[in-house]
Amino acid sequence: MRRRAVILLPLIVVLLIAANGVLRQRLADIIESFPTPRPAVPAGWPAPQYDFSSNPVTASGFELGRRLFHDPRLSRDGSISCASCHQQFAAFAHLDHRVSHGLNGANGTRNAPPLFNLAWQPELMWDGAIHDLELQPLAPLGNPVEMGEALEGVLPKLQSDAEYRRRFEAAFGPGEIDSRRMLLALTQFVGTLRSADSRYDRDELSAQEREGLALFRRHCASCHREPLFTDYSYRGNGLDADSADLGRSVVSGKAEDRGRFKVPSLRNVAVSAPYMHDGRFDTLAQVLRHYASGVQDSPALDPALRGGMALSAEQQQALVAFLESLTDEAFLQDERYSEPLP
């Protein structure tokens, strides 16, 4: 009996080690077989600005980025994740929040923008402060009213977590967890949040929406350029005669850019209220009323908006109907982007 145990024990140990290796490989294979979103350019779209060739998207890299995006441990006190202010059902904007509250309930100064099609953005943020998608996470991470955490604080947390160590190694190979790997993983996630499947894209518009589209092309499309619904320029849209927020001028150093902000995309606009850089409008109807009759003159004001737009109430309704057709339900419900299971 004892002799049998002596023979069996090493055998069991060897089997367990082998099984562990096989299981790990199986797990890695299963992860790599996930239908991970990959960088792709929808028909008729321009080439993206971010070059994924230096950061090839893999299933393990994307999954790691998704985990980091949803992990509140990235903030100083473990309370705020990227997803806290970027909610999928709001197209990764912060629904019902003019500005978002970060660490210790401190308020930010600008409305959290929705996140999708970021690979096409030449610069990030309302004022274009960030020139490269990879570097974008550093801003909310380090901002004391957002996540309030320095890289020197985040990296040890990740390095001391066995699950993260395994995932980083699966994504990038052996080596230490450093800021670059963390940023590349986050970029694989946020850079492949792609929204291109609204009823507008599928050409399934009602008569009223079509009328709205025609109005949109006449009045709005020069700045909100199709198919991305922005030309990524910085413009003044007449919100204030004297803007409290310096806007683009902080980055450009040019006085005339005071109160100018990046033209936001209008995809998923119906689900990502409130609107404007300070979230002052709660509804699209209010936004349209602003353009029709609320435009304030200032040196920053875009010449095309001087005097406002001549839009009847009916036309405004048609425009709102069209804007609602830009909602991409498949994107909002895509489980590949949702909070991962622990």
Partner: peptide, 17 residues
């Protein structure tokens, strides 16, 4: 984009504004 070594943003010599 994201760099390492002396140019690692973790060195505290990187602006985000």
């Amino acid at each position: 984009g994201a760099q390492t070594g002396a140019l690692d943003p973790a060195r505290g010599m990187f602006w985000t504004w």
